[in-house]
Design a binder for these strands. Structure first.
Length: 767
RNA sequence: UCCCCGGUGGUGUAAUGGCAACACAGUGGGUUUUGGUCCCUCUGAUCCAGGUUCGAGUCCUGGCCGGGGAUCCA
């Protein structure tokens, strides 16, 4: 298995485990309404592997809360695909529908707590009242129903007294929330539909945001991973659980979904491809479904390798298809025996061999660098097939293959020379008449260099079979992006080329469905599992070989375009304004009387609480220093623009700032003091004394410290002397660490430079 | 227009205030009876502007760009 580097998800889990989390539990929660695709593989592998890495549990749970969309046939298919990926789930296959009763109980509790109500507005009214992204919504006229009325209505909803669409259960949150999901989201809707598992037991079904977090909680899931588009759902996830579930509760984390160029991943698009017959089905080898990929010959190991290659992050990104191909080739190289097959046969007559020549050549199935044993017999006859593309009358520069009068090596056979080219009446080449050099079997001619080696098949023993050459399904890198263009028009017309009668070694005709091969110089193939018949397999091309000859004319993607630096923002023209007149006055005073940087003044007048805090601290210390401290240190540590949440009086901050401005402690040490005061509420003066944070600025003390660091890092010193002056920061950093921030940094820097005898470009104050 | 999340070579991911790293792609070379594999070389990046700091990709402020957000879907 590929070694796995860490990522932000794994860092979080590791931290939780280190903090005492007993067992990691993850889950993969597909809705059974379609087939899994390569994007799902990323999620499955993440969920599964993270659990395994910590000896935890991984659950497979079908999120079947919408009876209209779901179907049992997908339940089977999804399990098979996950198993194929090499993942196993702990415990039974689970279903959200198994928890319907429990969810209903919790919903009633929400009603009883006054946190949910039955809304009887129409769909259109509800939509209307939700507002827009920039305007608040308005309350439903049913929002203030009594608990009793809500409970009664909700129970009758469940009992089946109402028709679809007449009532819904909604959370009572905030119709003005900027997060539209929080504008009284729907929790339950009425659906008189038969569910694939619960049948007609229910006629109300929970919505995703209510159901999903409860499913996780019921199962004891600790980390609930999902893709970025659910980021805004997290607020609701947390709200529901905080309302109905005791701690510990599962937490949701989001990561960027897998996207590949030239690939379309959404169910909607894929469904159309299938339904309109652009592909042969959900398992068409060009589809990005797991079944399609598998039929194409892609291994689950390659998919694993790809996922470990691209990692997990929150930046939405598009992986180039080349990375998938790389992973596929890397894996297939080690598991594919080599055979020969001619796609476009051209007859070659070896004129110096007798009519009945049939020479048996034992040829290895594996190249020298793949650690497998095995061979098969090749039959060299007077007439053979070679690839039409391997002969050129007018070869381009650098051509290694056959030409009139030229020589080439037959793979595992002789060097042959082309003596004659036979044309038909239309001027088409129909045959090559060549002579074999009988001294070149297993050895290279000494008097000349033969560069090329080509594949071939005996015209007597060769067997004809069908090859399907697959290429990317789409012709454009980002299909489906342009709303003006139908993605069907972006399909690659050459995504499938059928070779009905390629000429292959006899061994290939015996291939069984699922067998893999490398057809030398052509690509990796797999015998199709659907259309192969005994004795006449159909071979799917999984991927071509890397081809440094064929791509020589291909457009080079790396043409460097220096991105023009974006124009500097017109900083001076900026107008800082505060809506509140009092804050506007303060802004004027800060920039005017106090002479503060307008940027800082703007930050300080973000709220009255901040400004008050600043005013109080500034009256007891250097004004502009306090301003910087409030902006850069206090605010980031504070909740909701209110410094009182910090628990540090303004006068205390002023005391710390004064220690710095009076050179008593360094800025580095001051940050430590600040942090200590913020967490413990301790007295700054006491901390400085206890921890001996007074600034050290005499050479007598610092000199030995610097020497010690240099002595401890001889390699770095050597590299520094060798010109790696960027290491200056490294040395200074070490000294600062060792003196726990008490050293006077500019003095340390000067001492290091003195000792090492070279001035650093970065260290002299311009860096 | 409002809210949330992102922004490091062509691509993807690292660097947890102190040496901008790894892989893919690209380049040049070596080995080679697959123009495969393998080995070596080189090219190439912190969105912009200010600020904090001895030191910023990393922290702060603002901007720019990208993604997501109004289904009785998940």
């Amino acid at each position: 298995m590929s070694r796995r580097r860490s990522d932000f998800i794994r860092d979080i889990v590791a931290k939780d485990v280190a903090a005492g989390l007993a067992r990691v539990v993850t889950r993969f929660p597909p809705e059974p309404n379609g087939f899994l695709h390569i994007g799902h593989a990323k999620a499955i592998l993440l969920d599964h592997d993270v659990a395994r890495e910590h000896g935890g549990h991984f659950h497979l749970r079908f999120d079947d809360t919408n009876p209209l969309a779901e179907d049992t046939r997908f339940v089977e298919a999804i399990q098979a695909d996950i198993t194929w990926l090499g993942c196993t789930w702990d415990g039974p296959v689970r279903f959200a529908s198994d928890y319907f009763a429990q969810m209903y109980e919790l919903a009633e509790r929400l009603v009883q707590d006054g946190r949910a109500y039955v809304d009887s507005e129409s769909i259109d009214e509800i939509r209307e009242h939700r507002g827009t992204v920039s305007e608040a919504g308005t309350a439903s006229r049913y929002r203030d129903r009594s608990v009793d009325e809500n409970l009664d209505l909700f129970r009758r909803m469940r009992a089946g007294e109402f028709a679809d669409g007449t009532h819904v259960l909604r959370a009572k949150l905030d119709m003005a929330s900027p997060n539209m999901l929080l504008r009284d989201p729907l929790l339950y809707r009425i659906r008189h539909a038969t569910h694939h598992r619960t049948g007609d037991a229910w006629c109300i079904y929970p919505m995703y945001d209510f159901a999903h977090c409860i499913e996780d909680a019921i199962e004891g899931v600790t980390h609930s991973f999902c893709t970025l588009e659910f980021e805004i759902n997290r607020a609701l996830y947390d709200w529901v659980l905080e309302s109905v579930w005791p701690e510990p509760r599962p937490r949701q984390f989001e990561f960027a979904r897998l996207e590949l160029d030239y690939v379309l991943m959404s169910k909607r698009y894929m469904r159309r491809l299938v339904e309109e017959g652009h592909v042969s089905g959900w398992d068409d080898p060009r589809m990005s479904t797991l079944r399609g990929l598998r039929r194409r010959g892609v291994t689950s190991e390659a998919l694993r390798a790809l996922n470990s290659l691209v990692g997990i992050s929150k930046a939405n990104s598009v992986i180039d298809l080349g990375k998938l191909e790389y992973c596929v080739r890397e894996d297939l190289n080690l598991r594919s025996p080599r055979l020969m097959c001619v796609l476009h046969p051209l007859r070659v007559v070896l004129t110096n061999l007798p009519e009945d020549h049939d020479e048996r050549i034992e040829a290895p199935l594996w190249p020298h660098d793949v650690p497998h044993e095995g061979s098969r017999a090749l039959h060299l006859t007077r007439e053979i097939w070679i690839e039409r593309d391997d002969f050129r009358v007018d070869p381009p520069k650098g051509w290694h293959r056959l030409t009139p009068g030229g020589e080439v090596r037959l793979r595992h056979g002789y060097v042959i020379r082309c003596d004659d080219v036979v044309l038909d009446g239309a001027g088409e080449i129909v045959e090559l008449r060549c002579s074999a050099d009988r001294d070149t079997l297993g050895s290279a001619p000494t008097d000349r260099r033969v560069r090329g080696t080509i594949h071939w098949v005996s015209a007597v023993h060769g067997r004809s079979l069908e090859l399907r050459l697959y290429d990317r399904l789409f012709a454009v890198a980002r299909p489906g992006r342009d709303p003006e263009v139908d993605f069907v028009d972006e399909l690659n017309p050459e995504s499938l080329t059928v070779i009905p009668a390629a000429m292959a070694e006899p061994e290939l005709a015996d291939a069984r469905p699922g067998d893999r091969f490398q057809l030398e110089r052509v690509g990796y193939f797999i015998a199709d599992t659907e259309d192969s018949r005994p004795g006449s397999p159909v071979l799917n091309r999984t991927v071509t070989l890397r081809d440094s000859w064929g791509k020589r004319d291909a457009p080079k993607p790396a043409a460097r375009v220096r991105r023009p630096k974006t124009k500097p923002a017109p900083a001076a023209a900026r107008v800082w304004e505060a809506g509140d007149p009092d804050l506007a006055d303060r802004f004027d005073r800060y920039t005017g009387v106090l002479g503060l940087d307008p940027q800082d003044a703007h930050t300080l007048t973000r709220s009255a609480a901040i400004a008050d805090y600043f005013d109080a601290a500034a009256s007891a210390a250097d004004t502009s220093a306090v301003a910087k401290w409030v902006v850069n240190e206090v605010l980031p540590a504070v909740d909701g623009d209110d410094p009182s949440t910090l628990g540090m009086a303004p006068t205390v901050l002023a005391a710390i700032v004064t220690m710095v401005t009076s050179d008593r402690i360094s800025a580095t040490a001051a940050k430590e003091v600040f942090a200590a005061v913020a967490t413990d509420g301790a007295d700054p003066e006491a901390i400085v004394r206890q921890r001996h944070l007074e600034q050290v600025s005499d050479t007598g003390t610092l000199g030995p410290a610097v020497d010690g660091v240099l002595a401890a890092h001889p390699d770095e010193v050597a590299r520094y002397r060798g010109g790696k002056t960027g290491l200056l920061g490294f040395f200074v950093g070490r000294v600062m660490k060792e003196t726990r921030g008490t050293a006077k940094p500019d003095l340390v820097r000067r001492l290091v430079v003195e000792r090492l005898g070279r001035e650093s470009g970065q260290g002299t104050g311009e860096g």
